[in-house]
Structure formats: C-alpha cells, structure tokens
Simulated scan of single mutants.
Amino acid sequence: MVSKVVFGRGCFNQLGDILSPKRLNTKAPFIYIVDDVFQGNSWLTSRIPLFYEDKIYYISADQEPKTSQVDELVEEIILTYKDLPSGIIGIGGGTILDLAKAVSIMLTNDGEAKEYQGWDLVKHPAIYHVGVPTISGTGAEVSRTTVLTGPEKKLGINSDYTPFDQVILDPELTKDVPKDQWFYTGMDCYIHCIESLTGTYLNAFSKTYGEKAYELCKELFLDNNLSDEEAQDKLMMASWHGGMSIAYSQVGVAHAMSYGLSYLLGTKHGIGNCIVFNHLEEFYPDGVALFKKMKAKHDIKLPQGLCANLTDKEFDIMIDVALSLEPLWENALGKHWRKTISRDKLKELYLKM
C-alpha cells in the first residue's frame, strides 16, 4: 500500500517540502515524468521544484505505455547521470503514473521491462517514487501494478515494489480535463467497482472500499447538484477507493477484453473499458444498465465498429491477450470459468464492438 498521502486543493504546492528530505545528493536528480499536455502551462509547471540537475521529461499520453518506452527512458537516465536519481515523480493520468512506477522499478532491476510483466517478478526495491494524478478514475495512483503493452502481451508489473512511496492528491489539478476524458476515466473507476463487488475474490477489505467508490460514482454521474469543486474532490476519492478495492481483489471481464482491444488496436484504457462494458449485460446486468443511464445523461457517444473489419488472425491475437489474464476471469466467473468462456464466445462479443 502507499505509505504516505496528502490530500487537498492546492496541496501540490507542498511537493518541494516533501521531496527535499529525500534528495540523496546534488548529483542525484529528481526526474519528473509529466504529461506533455502541461508543456508550456505555467500554472502547473512553474510550481515544479527544480534544483541542481533535476529534469522534466514531457511524455505524450496519446498511447498506452509500452515496455520499450520504459527501457528507453531508463537507458537515457542511466547514461545521463552518474548517480541513480533521488526519485521519480509522475505528474499526469494513468499512462504517466504507470510509466513513473515502471521506470522507478527498472532503474534498480536488471534486464528489460517485458521480463517483469506478471505477478511478483521484481526482485529489488524501486527507487523512491511519487505520484501526482491530474485525472481521476484509473486508480493508478494507488495500485500495485503498472500496466504496460509489451511485444507479446499487455500486462502489468504487479509487485509489492510497484506502489508509490508518496501520493499527492490535489483535486484542483483535474479542473481542465475534457468532458469525454472525464467520463471515460470516471467509468474506469465505476467498472473497477462493479467487477470487484461482483467477483469471487471479494472480501471485507475490498468490499468496504468498493462500496464507497460505487456510491461516490453514482452521486458524481447522476446528481445534478454538485459544484465543480465538489465533483473534482469526490471523483479523486472515488478513484482512490476504487483502486484500493481491486488491490485486495481483482477486476474482471471488461478489463480482460479491453486489454485485447488495447494491445491490437491501441485503444486507450478508459474508453476501451467503456466500449467493452457496454456489451456485458450477460455478466453484469445491473452494472451495465446503470452505466447506460450515466452514458445517456452525459450524452456520451461511444465509437462503434472497431472490430468490424478485423481478420481471423487479428481476432485470435485479441482473444489470446484476453484469455491470458486468468486471474481476471477467475474473479469474474470462478475457478471453472473456462466452461463459460470460449474463443467463439469472445469473438461473438468483440464483433458487437
């Protein structure tokens, strides 16, 4: 679990005070991995405390993070500095936060990032790393995984060394998120809740967090009486609680299938989950009905026909990726999930998207 958290509007201004005691020496920089949407945005970037050899890497979040991207960043950092960095700070949405977690791990572990896609493969603690979410919903700020697309699969580096050492939750940083992106990442949180609360891995810990996140999502996406600031605060806490819920349980069908879409087509995680979940009444009837109500209320039009012209080989690639995520299927359908899920069943579902 994340050991240190600050929350509150404007708490991003505490970043310098938080980092100062963690600086190893003047030659060991803090490396900031920042969503490039903020490049030239002095409202945020002027508040990043840069000293000595500290550096900002502006990274596009237009595509899902890749293992090769992690390896390139790690190599550049190692070749640029004599000492390991004092810390890695990710400022952005789920893509940027996952990159920051992965880079902090790979700076202290040999080999390539693709070798660590899986559960508990990391041998050495990551360097100090901090997460500053600027979009709410993915739960990346609290999860023990960093989801990466590799040459053969899309799968997280799941380990006890993955979670951030420090998270700064400043709802003010989410004020300029576009409406569609706000909805897609918010629904990622909502789908976390549905998959966790209906899963076979459910326990009292995950249920407590999942129920709170679920109630916050209903209030956020169906209540007309919230101010912008209240909505920002609540979605940030819904994201946190949703991430905590799946930390002690697991996600399910929507996430497994959206990984297939993402791997083959590059579909971003939030919208991919929405596209898949929209067709999962068979598995989550109440959850999908409420999702469609939220979608209609906010006038969200999901892309259609993504899989209309795919070849059999391309369908096989997506299905292979989805089926490889066995813990997700077991959580959704139990130990005998293979009796319910076949390759033909998955192709039938993908054809609806």
Rank of each mutant, 00 (worst) to 15 (best):
L169D: 06
N224G: 14
P125T: 10
D54Y: 09
K292G: 03
T26Y: 13
G137Q: 05
A102L: 06
S239Q: 09
V103H: 03
Y161V: 05
K66G: 00
P285W: 03
I246P: 05
Q39I: 03
I18A: 01
F38G: 00
E314S: 03
E282Y: 14
A247C: 10
I157G: 04
G16L: 00
G334W: 11
K212Q: 14
K22Q: 15
N224V: 08
G94R: 07
T134W: 12
G16I: 12
L15D: 01
E314N: 04
S46Q: 12
S3K: 15
G199R: 10
K293S: 07
Y209S: 13
P125M: 04
L302R: 11
Y128S: 02
F12E: 00
I127G: 00
K82W: 01
N41L: 09
L50T: 10
A238P: 02
G139R: 06
C193M: 04
S239H: 09
G272T: 10
E64D: 09
K207N: 11
L328A: 12
K123S: 14
V34F: 06
K22V: 08
T149D: 07
S136G: 15
F30G: 02
G10Y: 11
I271E: 02
I319F: 04
P29G: 06
T267Q: 06
P133C: 03
D176W: 07
Q166V: 14
H129S: 08
A322H: 05
P49Y: 10
E230Y: 07
E215F: 06
H269Q: 08
L235W: 03
E282M: 13
Q39W: 07
A213L: 04
M106V: 07
W119F: 15
G210I: 00
Q181G: 00
G287H: 05
K339M: 08
G118A: 08
L325K: 12
M244R: 13
I191D: 01
I48K: 01
K292M: 09
L107W: 05
L306W: 05
G118K: 08
K154Q: 01
D228F: 13
G266C: 08
N203M: 10
L226P: 00
V103D: 00
Y161D: 01
Q117L: 11
Y128C: 07
D71T: 12
N225M: 07
H336Q: 13
G270M: 11
P85C: 11
N224R: 13
I317W: 06
E282P: 01
S258Q: 14
Q69I: 02
S143A: 14
Q14K: 14
E281S: 13
S68M: 05
I246D: 03
H336I: 05
G186K: 11
S196I: 01
R47T: 04
R47E: 09
I275T: 00
Q181D: 08
Y248G: 04
K352C: 06
L261E: 03
I59A: 01
P65R: 02
D17N: 13
L222C: 03
T134Y: 11
T200V: 10
G252D: 10
M294D: 03
H298Y: 08
F205K: 14
E195A: 06
R23H: 02
D83M: 09
V37C: 10
K268S: 11
V37E: 07
D233E: 15
M106I: 11
D98E: 04
I341T: 06
N25F: 05
S86F: 07
E215Q: 15
E76F: 08
